[in-house]
């Protein structure tokens, strides 16, 4: 065990899996000698050489397109997109190619690869270094979408993602890259995909959330506890495929649901959670499903702190649900 930040856990996961599996190659912008702009790939080139961790020209569609070719050939590419906001030039390669390759070839060709990318706000990054684009990708059959919220999970989920036979978008909540530490095992271990985690047990309200919002919700849950409300937090960890059972079990217990996400509200992942609960657990609900989300505006710079859901906003929703 070593105490690590989420960022160090990602780095450790990459190092260990590269040792374990020689098919794994890491590439992207500034990931080599510079170790990535966040340092997630620090030391990989040194340890494994330029063949297995290298810098690419500045073209996200090229990064993903080339990763697909490598995956087709039997490698396990782990390309990095420097910021999730810059993934859109590669959108076509991800949604039209990687996600559909298995299906369109009748299972003959597959694209197991992990696209790592830091996402989310909280680093004073303005429009283009802050967004949470999960909804676009969760709308894409053939893709898996994973979001860790703790160092332990980050490493375990990353390794499971790399060992998975399908393309995975691995969204790293950059706001909490360095904010908390946790004991993380050395060597490879897996945290299974498609399984949520109960981050906090409670009986009055269920909060379903993921990524950097988990710690915000934990803070709100403490504030709620002080006011006599017992909050259960479901940290999804994998958005696609979704652990519906964990959500439905919790909602059946609490009868109330608050969904928390950073992304804009309209047509978002939180909407899907709400729909599933409305379809399958309406008989348990004692209050309307509430969503706390980013505003339906572009992500701002100066007013970032206003835009991002914080514990106050989450608490307000919890109170509304409980007092309905």
């Amino acid at each position: 065990m070593t105490t690590m930040t989420l960022l160090q856990a990602v780095n450790s996961g990459l190092k260990d899996i590269m040792q374990d599996d020689d098919r794994v190659v890491v590439f992207g912008e500034d990931v080599g000698i510079n170790g990535g702009v966040f340092r997630a790939t620090e030391g990989l080139t040194k340890q494994y050489g330029e063949e297995r961790c290298f810098d690419t020209p500045l073209a996200e569609s090229g990064i993903i397109g080339v990763a697909i070719g490598m995956a087709l050939y039997g490698m396990r590419p782990v390309p990095e997109i420097q910021f999730a906001d810059f993934i859109f030039p590669a959108f076509d390669q991800i949604v039209s190619e990687a996600a559909k390759m298995r299906y369109r070839s009748g299972g003959e060709f597959t694209c197991p690869m992990v696209i790592r990318t830091p996402y989310g706000g909280g680093i004073r990054g303005g429009h283009y270094h802050s967004q949470s684009p999960e909804a676009y990708f969760c709308h894409t059959p053939g893709l898996k979408v994973v979001v860790p919220s703790t160092p332990y999970d980050a490493k375990g989920l990353l390794i499971s993602s790399i060992r998975d036979e399908d393309p995975v978008l691995f969204l790293e909540p950059k706001r909490i890259y360095r904010s908390t530490k946790q004991d993380v095992p050395e060597g490879v271990y897996e945290v299974p995909l498609g399984k949520a985690r109960i981050a906090r047990a409670g009986k009055d309200v269920t909060i379903v959330t993921f990524g950097a919002m988990v710690s915000i919700c934990e803070k709100a849950a403490e504030d709620a506890a002080a006011k006599g409300m017992d909050v259960e937090i479901v940290d999804l960890r994998t958005l696609l495929p979704l652990d519906e059972e964990a959500i439905l079990t919790s909602v059946a217990k609490t009868g109330r649901l608050v969904v928390v996400q950073e992304a804009p509200r309209f047509c978002s992942f939180g909407g899907e959670i709400s729909a599933i609960v409305a379809e399958k657990a309406i008989e348990y609900l004692q209050a309307p499903i509430l969503r706390v989300a980013g505003f339906d505006t572009p992500f701002p710079y100066s007013l970032e702190h206003v835009y991002m859901p914080d514990a106050k906003r989450v608490l307000a929703a919890v109170e509304r649900a409980v007092n309905f």
């Binding site: 702009v37 966040f38 420097q82 909280g122 680093i123 004073r124 990054g125 270094h129 950059k174 706001r175 904010s179 509200r265 505003f295 339906d296 970032e304 702190h305 206003v306 991002m308 914080d310 106050k312 906003r313 307000a316």
Partner: peptide, 25 residues
């Protein structure tokens, strides 16, 4: 959304600026 936010700010005070937020690149 604007009305809600302004009402919340009135009730609970405005959101706080995260002093630790720092841009990496």
């Amino acid at each position: 959304q604007q009305e809600r936010l302004l009402a919340l700010e009135k009730a609970q005070g405005g959101a706080e600026i995260d002093k630790n937020a720092a841009f990496p690149l």
